[in-house]
Simulated assay, not measured.
Amino acid sequence: MGLEKMGALEWYKVVHGNQAWRLVSCIWLHAGVIHLLANMLSLVFIGIRLEQQFGFVRVGVIYLLSGIGGSILSCLFIQRNISVGASGALFGLLGAMLSELLTNWTIYTNKAAALLTLLVIIAINLAVGILPHVDNFAHIGGFLTGFLLGFMLLLRPQFGWVERRRLPANSLKSKYTACQVILWILATVLLIVWFVVGLVMLFKGENANEKCGWCHYLSCVPTSRWNCNN
């Protein structure tokens, strides 16, 4: 049975075939054993840390919604080929790790080193996405979705709150800082806008390449060694 029949992401069938479920089903399909193993190893290294700290429910929500966000952006830009894989969801976890570090900045030690390491990992993985036959739009869409979700779902109480919560109410600090609350509000608004606008554009049959003439280079950069039209 081919990937198309199993639920691969295909723009025409999503938009004109009333098969929106492909936005989700494609996350669980892979193009081969190597593709599957690479993604599952990435999930082990990224997901275990997050799940241990925040629980499987919140991490699962980020994983699923990031995968859908990646599928939406992929469909808006890639309309001639099919796409499968959990990479968008995995990039969402990376995005969530980044926003979690930023929103909980005050409680971490060695934060600059952690931030630099995470940014390098993200940059390398996104750079790989400019190779042909790699759906970097799914990566970018998943990353941005996960980045916003991290501000919403991965907040930690500010430093000292846990130790002081038994003190009298008039001496107790707020559980979250003003910065955390502001970021939560902004992320919530932006996430809703992104999903609403993205889905409306998708089901109206719009091609995002027509609105952004250079964006196709984000997913593939042609060279003398390969052609991005393949």
Rank of each mutant, 00 (worst) to 15 (best):
H216I: 13
G146K: 00
G70K: 00
K13Q: 15
G47F: 04
A208Q: 12
V128F: 10
T109H: 12
S25K: 14
V162D: 14
Q53Y: 01
N18A: 15
E206T: 15
Y176T: 01
R80W: 05
V221S: 09
L9N: 06
V24M: 10
L148I: 00
I121Y: 05
L73G: 03
I122D: 13
R49K: 07
L131P: 08
K175L: 04
E100M: 02
A113D: 14
S71K: 01
V44K: 07
F151D: 03
N207I: 06
C228T: 10
R164L: 03
A20F: 15
V128A: 10
L76Q: 05
Q19Y: 06
C228V: 09
I185H: 14
I72N: 01
R166E: 09
N170M: 11
R49T: 07
K13F: 13
V162F: 00
N110H: 14
M97W: 07
G150M: 00
G129S: 11
K175T: 03
C228S: 11
V193H: 05
E51R: 00
L3P: 07
L167P: 04
G67V: 01
I192N: 08
L149F: 02
N81A: 11
L73Y: 00
W11P: 05
A8H: 11
G85M: 04
L50N: 01
G213Q: 09
D135G: 03
Q79R: 15
G142A: 00
W21K: 10
G55M: 02
L9C: 06
R165A: 05
I192E: 07
V196Q: 08
V59M: 06
V197S: 08
A31Y: 13
A178R: 06
G60W: 01
V61S: 05
S171N: 06
Q180Y: 04
A86W: 02
S219T: 15
T177G: 07
L115N: 08
S171T: 11
T223I: 11
I140A: 13
H139D: 07
V33S: 13
S74D: 08
L43A: 15
P132E: 11
L218I: 03
N136H: 07
V57K: 01
I72Q: 05
A8S: 14
G32L: 13
R165L: 02
R164C: 02
W214T: 14
F159V: 05
A114H: 12
H133D: 11
N104D: 03
G213A: 09
L183E: 10
S99P: 06
L102Q: 11
E210A: 11
F147K: 00
G160F: 04
T223F: 10
R225H: 09
S66K: 00
I121F: 07
L101G: 06
L191F: 12
G141N: 04
T177R: 01
V33K: 10
G198M: 00
W21E: 12
Q52G: 02
M97C: 08
G129M: 08
V193W: 05
N209Q: 12
Q53N: 06
S87P: 03
M1D: 12
L149Q: 09
